[in-house]
């Protein structure tokens, strides 16, 4: 384990009101993630791993507790500030890819740059470079439905990386892929990690989690175990 602290959460709690009932999704999570870690968050469904992922990804705000990202407290931020943090610091990779179906691969990758306010030409250059990095230089003009599942997930990875985020956040990244394509995507993550990218991945599959260097398991909204593995 190396690098300075990137993420620090303490006492992170998230409650949902479902009618008269209150659901305690997270009951006080304490955790620290350093720069250039490769971390998997595991746990059965209902353990709170998706909630934690949404909070780390700044898609959601905690009911109470603190969340520091890159030395800034984001748990107190308003909507538009969170949007800015998502844009600059976070790169999402989703299970269902979440590409815009009518836009080309290139345009999909351009989206974060549009919201960052980058001008058209510079944007296209950046997006093209990101696609080259994931081996899709020859698929830039293709629409998502003209690409295979693995290629779509690569487009999503390119999109996640295009803004040079502090952290790559992947939610069940291989959930919709067959085993050989899964291996391919995991190889991409491995490579990114080797290049210095911080990767946080949420999964319920043990063999996927085994690619990570550190595995945190959640149970009933609290951290159950936190294991660091030997380098493979």
């Amino acid at each position: 384990m190396s690098g300075e602290s990137l993420i620090r959460v303490s006492g992170l709690t998230r409650e949902y009101r479902m009618g008269a009932e209150t659901v305690h999704a997270l009951r006080g999570v304490d955790m620290e993630i350093r720069r250039n870690e490769y971390l998997a968050i595991m746990g059965p469904s209902g353990s709170g791993k998706s909630t934690l992922m949404n909070l780390i990804g700044c898609l959601d705000s905690p009911t109470c507790g603190e969340y520091w990202l890159n030395g800034v407290e984001v748990s107190q931020m308003q909507d538009d500030e969170l949007a800015r943090v998502r844009n600059r610091e976070i790169g999402f990779v989703f299970q269902t890819f979440n590409l815009l179906p009518r836009a080309s691969a290139l345009h999909n990758v351009e989206l974060p740059l549009i919201y960052a306010g980058m001008s058209g030409r510079e944007r296209r250059q950046h997006a093209a470079r990101a696609l080259e990095r994931v081996g899709l230089a020859d698929r830039m003009a293709h629409k998502p439905n003209e690409l295979s599942g693995g290629q779509r997930q690569r487009v999503a990875i390119a999109r996640a990386l295009v803004n040079d985020p502090s952290i790559l956040l992947a939610d069940e990244p291989t959930g919709n892929l067959d085993s050989s394509t899964s291996a391919e995507i995991m190889a991409v993550f491995e490579e990114l990690y080797r290049q210095g990218q911080t990767v946080v991945m949420v999964t319920h599959e043990a063999d996927i989690a085994s690619h990570a260097r550190r595995v945190v398991t959640l149970l009933d909204g609290v951290v159950n175990s936190d294991t660091v593995r030997e380098a493979a």
């Binding site: 949007a83 979440n98 960052a116």
Partner: peptide, 16 residues
């Protein structure tokens, strides 16, 4: 709605 969610996750603010 999903497109809006995607855009927001990529950094679109309310005003965008």
């Amino acid at each position: 709605t999903r497109e809006i969610g995607i855009r927001k996750s990529l950094g679109a603010r309310r005003r965008d």
